[in-house]
Design a protein around this nucleic acid. Structure first.
Length: 281
DNA sequence: ATCCAGGCATGCA
DNA sequence: TGCATGCCTGGA
């Protein structure tokens, strides 16, 4: 068991249900979450607004994995202060207080966001769980069965046709080719920044948005500002005077300029706010 | 019943 | 360099 103490508040359901991560499931309506962490399953619960309890099916090296996954090194309070650039952002920081970023597994993140295009959260989740159930190993915790996400080697033999039969549609081709020509920089993560973003976009099926999500959620680069349709609507409404023709590129660049090294957090908070609290978007 | 969604690749100006 | 269109599927 690992106990995580935060000086700021931590909101479990905001963090796990905001759409950044797909395969954690909640019990006791949002009080407890179970999900895979690398080679094990963890149970996350909350002792008080500042304290998380992490239990695991495997205690080996748990603390460092947990510290990384929950990004305990982030200075959350400094982040909140830093992105409150106007009254709107003050409102958003307040409304989403306790929403944290998670550092996800890079491989699963690639598959997830390759599947995400023109899709939706329930469907992406369904596809990921199907892959896990078919090709990952089962682990039981507290009487519930969970599946680890398969490794590249577990999936490399699957044909494009099989992926299509799983309902991946035209994304089947992307997943298949990603597994065949598995890029080594995914394993040797020595490149970063603009270089990394460029490399990611060389992969078939990965454009600006998906590359940004993988760099933010998988590689943990907080300076990235992914622009999906929600962020697009939000930014156009509040920062581009409703100009619907504003290019995505410009929106992305503006987000990065406005929020700097905390752009990824800003994006995540805005994303939740847009979906949950702004009736016009 | 159409329509379009957490985009991308391709073709054309 | 910028814009239009097709793409699989499934849910509204």
């Amino acid at each position: 068991m690992v106990v995580l103490e935060f000086s700021e508040q931590y909101n479990l359901s905001y963090t796990f249900d905001c759409g950044q991560i797909f395969r954690f499931v909640s019990f006791n309506n949002g009080k407890t979450y179970y999900g895979p962490l690398e080679d094990r399953v963890i149970k996350v619960s909350q002792r008080n607004p500042h304290t998380l309890i992490i239990e695991s099916t495997n205690e080996d090296g748990l603390e460092s994995k947990v510290n990384q996954f929950f990004r305990v090194g982030d200075n959350y309070l400094e982040m909140q202060k830093s992105i409150q650039i106007d009254s709107l952002m003050e409102t958003i920081v307040k409304a989403t207080n306790g929403l944290h970023m998670l550092k996800q597994d890079i491989f699963e993140c690639c598959i997830a966001y390759l599947l995400s295009q023109c899709s939706n959260i329930p469907r992406i989740t369904k596809h990921l769980n199907e892959l896990a159930q078919k090709y990952g190993s089962p682990i039981e915790m507290d009487g519930h069965e969970f599946y680890l996400f398969p490794k590249r080697d577990d999936l490399v033999g699957i044909s494009e046709e099989q992926f299509r039969n799983m309902g991946f549609g035209y994304r089947a081709k992307y997943i298949h080719s990603f597994l065949q020509d598995y890029p080594e920089f995914i394993i040797n993560t020595n490149i970063q920044g603009i270089e990394l973003n460029k490399k990611l976009q060389e992969i078939e099926g990965i454009g600006q948005k998906v590359a940004d999500c993988i760099q933010l959620f998988g590689f943990g680069d907080l300076s990235i500002f992914p622009v999906d349709t929600w962020i697009q609507k939000f930014m156009i409404k509040y920062y581009f005077k409703g100009n619907a023709k504003t290019p995505l590129k410009q929106i992305r660049q503006t987000g990065i300029q406005l929020f700097g090294k905390w752009a990824g957090y800003a994006e995540e908070l805005i994303y939740m706010y847009s979906r949950c609290f702004d009736p016009d978007l």
